[in-house]
Amino acid sequence: MTSQTSTEYEKYYVPEKSRLAVCATIGLILSIYGAASIMNDMTFGDPGEATSSWTIFWVGMFFFMATLFAWFRTAIRENIAGMNSAQLKKSYVLGMFWFIFSEVMFFFAFFGALFYVRNLVGPWLAGEGEGGRMNDLLWPGFEYVWPMMQTPQEAVGGASAQLMANNGAFVSPNTSLSFADAAVWWHWLPMWNTLVLLTSSLTCHIAHMGILAGDRKKFNLWLTITVVLGIIFLCLQYMEYHEAYVEYGLTLNAGIYGSTFFMLTGFHGFHVFMGMTMLLIQLLRSVIGKQFTATDHFGFEASSWYWHFVDVVWVFLFLFVYIL
C-alpha cells in the first residue's frame, strides 16, 4: 500500500457505476418475498398444496449471497490496488461503527421487552398495582415468578376456562434454564458457553496483536482458535436448544419465558454465526491470499469489533436471561 505521507490532497475514490446495488436488491426482494410466502403457506395455507415459495426464497438467497460476495471482493481488490485513501478508509471505519451501533439498538428492543415483561407485565398479571385488575377479571390464580413456569392461560385451567383473551395455546415448560434450576453446575451449558465466548474474544485480540506485529503465523494460529471456539459455541447452543425442546418442554410457544429466551439467544446465536463467518473469511484471506499487513488489515479489524460486540451482548444475556 502506498504510504500516506504526501501532504498533497489525495483524491477520494468514487467508484464507477456498478451493478452491485441492483443485483443485491433483486436477491433481497426475492428472498423476503419467498420467506414471507413460506410462512404464509405454513400458517394460512393448505398443507397439501405445492407452492414455489421455497424455490423463490433460495433463488433470492443465492443471488443475494453471490452479490455480497462479489461486493466484498470488489472492495478488497480496490484496497489492494491502492485506490483507498486514508480518508476513504475512515469512511469504512465510520460505517462499521454505526452499523454495530444499529445492531446494539436491535438487541436493545428485545432486552427492553424482557425488562418490561419481567418488571411490569408479570406483576400486573398477578394482580399487583394499578394494572392488577386483570388478575381478578381474566387470570384468577395466576402467580408471577420468573422464569415464568406457568402461563396465565394454564393457571386458569387452559383456554377453555377463559375463552375471552386467548390467542394461541401456550404450554408451560417444566424446567427452566436458569442457574437456579441447574441440576449439577458442570452440566450447566450456559456457563461453558460463557467461558468459550469470553476466551474467543481474548484469542481474537491475540490474533490482532499478531498482525499488528507483522507476525502472520501468530495471526493465523490465534484466529483459527477463535473461529473454532465460535463453532464450539454454536454446537453447545444447539445442544442447549435440543435439551430445552426435548427435556425441558421449553419451546417457542411456552409463553413469554420461551419467547424471550429463544428470541434473545436465537438472534445472538445468529450473530455469532455471522461473526464467525466473517472471521473465517478473514482467516482464509490471510492463509490463502496472504493478505493483511501490520498497517492494513481493516477487514479483520471490522470483523473483530463485531466479534467483541457479540461477546458483550452475550455477557448481558448471561446476566439477564440465565442468572438473574
Partner: peptide, 30 residues
C-alpha cells in the same frame, strides 16, 4: 430507532407464525 422497529415487527412475525406470546397476555406477554 429503525432497528427497534425491526424488533417490533419481528416480534409480530413470531407471534403470528411461530406461537410466541410477546403480545398475548394468555402466554404472559402484553
Amino acid at each position: 430507532v429503525m432497528p427497534v422497529l425491526a424488533g417490533a415487527v419481528t416480534m409480530m412475525l413470531m407471534d403470528v407464525h411461530f406461537g410466541t406470546s410477546f403480545f398475548s397476555a394468555a402466554g404472559g406477554g402484553d
